[in-house]
Design a protein around this nucleic acid. Structure first.
Lengths: 215, 215
DNA sequence: TCATTTCCTGACCGTATGGTCAAGGTGAAG
DNA sequence: CTTCACCTTGACCATACGGTCAGGAAATGA
């Protein structure tokens, strides 16, 4: 666990604000702690400390550790779904996939904790979000496969297997969040700079778009 | 946790064999449990049950939970390093990177648990294998970057950023192990068949080799 | 057979954790 | 000011976990 100070908390205001602000602070702290320690390794005490609240207060807003965890995972999934719209209103793979890579790389940079929690959840067999995988994610995937297939049929890219293209996109973009520590270690212990992030995005886009014959 | 039966154990023989066989059974069970539950979620009791031994016996062979975990992680790292030799004695990227993708995809299929334990370890900040990242992995990475750069200089592939190419390779190949549950869910709940694995390997190789302009 | 080393294991212990609760504080409505 | 619903929290509890240990079983070699 890194020795960061506690998560910032805004001053409370009206009743409604108290609830919203506390839930936000708890979720933000929980995302970080779950990412850094895993579900089993995370403790409510640690989350409470990081959120700047007594442990009993966490249980006032979230009945159980599992409830809190579920909320964190759902939150991440929604962020990804939002960003996935990059795919839709694009005339071809260069714009669509290019924008999707950009969006997912940006999320990897801005929400590394969330990405890790998701990865951990899936690696452990998706005990709490299995239904999401079978409904929302499956539907989204089928839709995107259809879009890619259309681009192939229109001769806008090589006839690659759309499913494995999606896996490559997910894997590569999320790698920069999930394995960020390894990347940082291989970068002389320093986080990627703005310039290096742009280089990463450009490299990934270049290899992917060339790999599918779109450029 | 899946309801699998306990790990198979060979019948004991001589003194030396007892030790070897028990350590093997424990490590095999531990790899699976750590992968499925994470370090914090794994319990010595669960590992013991899966290995078919009383918990106290685990502590006879491995002093602490952390010792056992460390051995599991090291084991995986060595398997990857072995496979990485595919890279070395190759005349160009088609053979070298092609063989590397094949080797890593095979490991993702044969050692999915190990891959997950590694991923989890890195995601949590590499608390026990940080030194490996800074020494062995860094050296290996630099060496491979030099090889790729040479191929670029010899005009055998496009001038992509070798570092990000390596990240793309790691991410994509390991994705089939680490996110195997998600892939299985999107495959109607069934594990990939032999045919589907070959399709996956071919797709990844095709996209990567085309992406770096080697084909 | 006997001595010695290695292996095995049930019972036990201290600690940390998720969760509870009752009593008290605080903002808003009338 | 009073009321009441909402919020806060220190103290507490039962459980589960990692780890220990003492005493016995089994293999090995003389």
């Amino acid at each position: 666990m890194s020795g960061d100070a506690q998560i910032s908390r805004l001053k409370p205001g009206r009743r409604m604000d108290i609830r919203r602000e506390n839930e936000r602070a708890i979720l933000e702290a929980a995302e970080k702690v779950f990412a850094e320690a895993g579900f089993g390794g995370a403790t409510m005490q640690l989350i409470a400390d990081m959120a700047g609240l007594p442990k009993a207060n966490l249980h006032y807003y979230f009945a159980t550790k599992e409830d809190l965890y579920r909320r964190v995972v759902q939150q991440i999934f929604e962020i990804w779904l939002d960003a996935a719209s990059s795919f839709d209103d694009a005339p071809g793979p260069v714009e669509g996939i290019g924008a999707y890579v950009d969006a997912k790389m940006d999320i990897s940079r801005t929400h590394p904790h969330g990405s890790k929690v998701w990865a951990s959840e899936v690696m452990h067999g998706a005990p709490v979000i299995q239904d999401y995988l079978e409904t929302t994610l499956r539907d989204w995937t089928e839709g995107r496969i259809a879009v890619i297939q259309r681009w192939i049929d229109e001769g806008k890219m090589q006839p690659v297997n759309p499913r494995h293209l999606l896996y490559l996109l997910w894997a590569t973009t999320q790698h920069y969040a999930d394995f960020g520590h390894q990347i940082q270690t291989l970068n002389d212990g320093r986080p990627l700079s703005d310039k290096q992030w742009n280089e990463a995005k450009a490299s990934v886009k270049d290899m992917v778009l060339r790999g599918i014959g779109a450029i």
